[in-house]
Design a protein around this nucleic acid. Structure first.
Length: 532
DNA sequence: CTAGGGTTAG
C-alpha cells in the first residue's frame, strides 16, 4: 500500500479516493495512478496498479498507456504480455507507450516490432519511433521514418521536428539535411515553436555554425530554461566564454530559474577559456545562491577546469572530496592534462586507474606504455604491451569528416581510399614545403608510436584532419571557409599546422574535435588562444 | 474524473 508520497496533494487525493468508495471505477483508478506518476511517485503508482487488478478491476487502454511510463519500476515485457491478450498493443496510444518503454531500455528492435503492429499509426506513434532511432544513434533509420510518415500523409508536428533536428546535429549527418528540415519547419509554421527553435539552435551550434545558432536565439520571442541553457552550451562549445557568461547574467537579471544543466554550461565555458577563478566563483553561486547540490557532472567539470589549466593538485583535491570514487572519464581528463603539462607520475596513476576500470580503453595503455618508455623503464613497458595483446585491445581509429557539396567525405590517418587521393597527397606535399619555409618544425612528441623520427614526421603529416583539409582546399572555391569534424582531440602539432595553413591559404578553418570547436582565422590565430 | 512522443550537459 501507499505509505508515503512526495506530494501532499496526492496523499489527500488518495484519501478522498478511498473514502468516496469509487474503488470499482477503472477511470478513477487510472486517474489516481496518473496523478502519482506526474508527482514523482512511480512506486506508489505501480502499487496502485497491482491493487486494482487484485480487486478485480480490469485496466483499460488509458491505464496501460499510463503505467508504461513507470520505468524502471515496471518491466515492459511483463506489461507487454498483459496487453497482447486484450489487443490493446495494436492501439496507437498503448503501442506508443510500449515502444517508448522498450526504446528507453535500449531495445530498439523490440520497439520496432511493436510499432509495426500498431493498426492506425498517428503522428505520436511515428514521432516516438523516430525519436527511438535518434536516441540509439540510428541516424539513417530516423531520417527514413520522417520521409515515410510524410509520404503516408501524416503531418509532422513540433515534437517530430525537434527529434529530427536533433538527429541532424549528429556528426555524421550533413548540414544540408539539417537546413532542409529547417525549411520544412518554416513551411509548416512550426519553426518558432519553443522546442523546435531550441533544437535548431543546438543543431547549428553543434554543426559549427554559432552565428546561425545565435540568430535563432535572438529571434525567440519567448524563452524557457532549455533555450537559455542551449545558448550557454553553444557558446561554451565554441570557446566563447564571455558571451556564455553574458547570457548567464541576462538570465539572472530576468530572474529565470537556473538548473544544474545551466551550470554545466557555465563551467564548460570557463574551462575552455582557462577562467579558473571565474569557474570557482560560479560554483559558489550555484551552491550558495541557487541551492543546487553539485552532481558528479559538476565535479567532473571542476576537475576539467583545474586540470586543463595545469592546476592538477586542485583537480586531485576535487576528486578526493567527491562522495563517490572518480569515474574513468574523470581520470581520462587527468591523464590528458598530465600529458600536456608533463606530469608523468600522476599520469601513470591515472592510466592505471582507467585500465583497472575499463580494460578495453586503448588510449590509456598507449599513454602508459609511452610514459614508461620515456622513463626508460623497458620492463614495465613490455608488461603493458603484453597486457594489450592478451586483452586484444585495439586502438580507436581517428576519423575526420568534411562536407563538400552535400556529401560527407571521411578520412582515416594515412588514408588512401579517396578517389582524389593523388591530388590530396600532392596538396599535402605542397603545404609541407611552404610550412617549412615559414620555419615550421614538426613536434614529434605527439606521435605515440615506437618508430624512428623520419617516419614520425610522415605520420604527423598524414593525420586525418590534414587529409580532410587538403581535400577541402582542392575541392572548394578559393577563400571559402572549411569545416572539419573529428572524433578524437586535435593534436598539438596539427593545431600549430592548421593555424599556418589558415594563414597561407587565407581561409577560415573550423575544426570540431571530440571536445570543442576551434576557429582558425586567416590571421593565423585560433579562437582557443592555444588553450584547450 | 484517466492516455502515449520532444528539446538543454559531459
Amino acid at each position: 500500500m501507499v505509505a508515503y508520497s512526495k506530494c501532499m496533494a496526492m496523499v489527500d487525493a488518495l484519501r478522498l479516493f478511498k473514502e468516496t468508495g469509487s474503488l470499482g471505477n477503472v477511470v478513477s483508478w487510472t486517474a489516481m495512478i496518473s496523478g502519482f506518476l506526474q508527482n514523482d511517485g512511480k512506486e506508489e503508482a505501480v502499487d496502485l496498479f497491482s491493487e486494482m487488478k487484485r480487486k478485480g478491476v480490469r485496466p483499460n487502454e488509458f491505464t496501460y498507456s499510463v503505467i508504461l511510463t513507470a520505468l524502471p519500476v515496471i518491466s515492459p515485457s511483463e506489461v507487454h504480455a498483459q496487453v497482447v491478450k486484450t489487443n490493446y498493443e495494436r492501439s496507437s496510444t498503448v503501442g506508443t507507450a510500449l515502444l517508448d518503454a522498450y526504446v528507453k531500455l535500449g531495445k530498439v528492435d523490440e520497439a520496432a516490432k511493436v510499432f509495426s503492429g500498431i493498426d492506425d499509426k498517428d503522428i505520436v506513434a511515428w514521432s516516438a519511433m523516430l525519436a527511438g532511432y535518434a536516441q540509439t544513434g540510428e541516424t539513417e533509420a530516423a531520417i527514413k521514418m520522417f520521409s515515410k510518415l510524410t509520404k503516408g500523409g501524416v503531418k509532422p508536428n513540433e515534437f517530430t521536428f525537434s527529434s529530427i533536428l536533433n538527429v541532424c546535429a549528429a556528426t555524421t549527418a550533413s548540414m544540408g539535411q539539417g537546413k532542409q528540415f529547417h525549411g520544412f519547419a518554416i513551411k509548416s509554421r512550426l519553426d518558432s515553436s519553443l522546442c523546435v527553435s531550441s533544437a535548431l539552435l543546438t543543431m547549428y551550434a553543434k554543426k559549427g555554425n554559432i552565428e546561425s545558432a545565435e540568430e535563432v536565439f535572438k529571434r525567440q520571442r519567448e524563452r524557457d530554461l532549455v533555450s537559455w541553457n542551449s545558448m550557454i552550451s553553444g557558446y561554451a562549445q565554441h570557446g566563447q566564454a564571455m558571451k556564455a557568461l553574458e547570457v548567464f547574467k541576462e538570465m539572472k537579471k530576468r530572474k529565470v530559474k537556473m538548473d544544474s544543466v545551466t551550470f554545466v554550461g557555465v563551467f564548460t565555458a570557463c574551462t575552455h577559456a582557462g577562467l579558473v577563478e571565474e569557474g570557482e566563483k560560479y560554483y559558489d553561486i550555484m551552491v550558495r545562491d541557487c541551492k543546487i547540490a553539485p552532481t558528479k557532472e559538476h565535479n567532473s567539470c571542476m576537475v576539467d577546469l583545474y586540470s586543463r589549466a595545469g592546476q592538477l593538485e586542485k583537480a586531485m583535491k576535487v576528486i578526493d572530496n567527491m562522495p563517490n570514487p572518480a569515474s574513468s572519464t574523470i581520470w581520462r581528463t587527468i591523464l590528458a592534462a598530465c600529458r600536456v603539462h608533463k606530469k608523468t607520475e600522476l599520469g601513470r596513476l591515472a592510466a592505471e586507474k582507467i585500465i583497472a576500470m575499463k580494460p578495453e580503453d586503448s588510449a590509456a595503455y598507449v599513454l602508459l606504455s609511452n610514459m614508461y618508455a620515456e622513463a626508460g623503464d623497458w620492463q614495465e613497458r613490455a608488461k603493458v604491451r603484453k597486457l594489450m595483446n592478451e586483452r586484444n585491445v585495439k586502438k580507436e581509429p581517428g576519423y575526420s569528416w568534411i562536407e563538400v557539396k552535400n556529401k560527407t567525405h571521411a578520412f582515416l590517418a594515412g588514408d588512401r581510399s579517396h578517389p582524389r587521393k593523388d591530388q590530396i597527397y600532392m596538396k599535402l606535399e605542397d603545404l609541407s614545403t611552404r610550412l617549412k619555409d615559414l620555419g615550421y618544425e614538426p613536434d614529434k612528441s605527439y606521435v605515440l608510436q615506437d618508430i624512428d623520427d623520419e617516419h614520425k614526421e610522415a605520420v604527423l603529416a598524414q593525420h586525418s584532419e590534414r587529409l580532410a583539409i587538403a581535400f577541402g582546399l582542392i575541392a572548394t572555391p578559393k577563400g571559402s571557409p572549411l569545416l572539419i569534424i573529428k572524433n578524437l582531440r586535435v593534436c598539438g602539432d596539427c593545431h600549430a599546422v592548421i593555424k599556418l595553413i589558415a594563414k597561407i591559404e587565407k581561409r577560415e578553418i573550423v575544426v570540431r574535435d571530440s571536445n570543442r570547436f576551434h576557429h582558425f582565422g586567416s590571421d593565423g590565430v585560433c579562437s582557443c588562444g592555444d588553450f584547450w
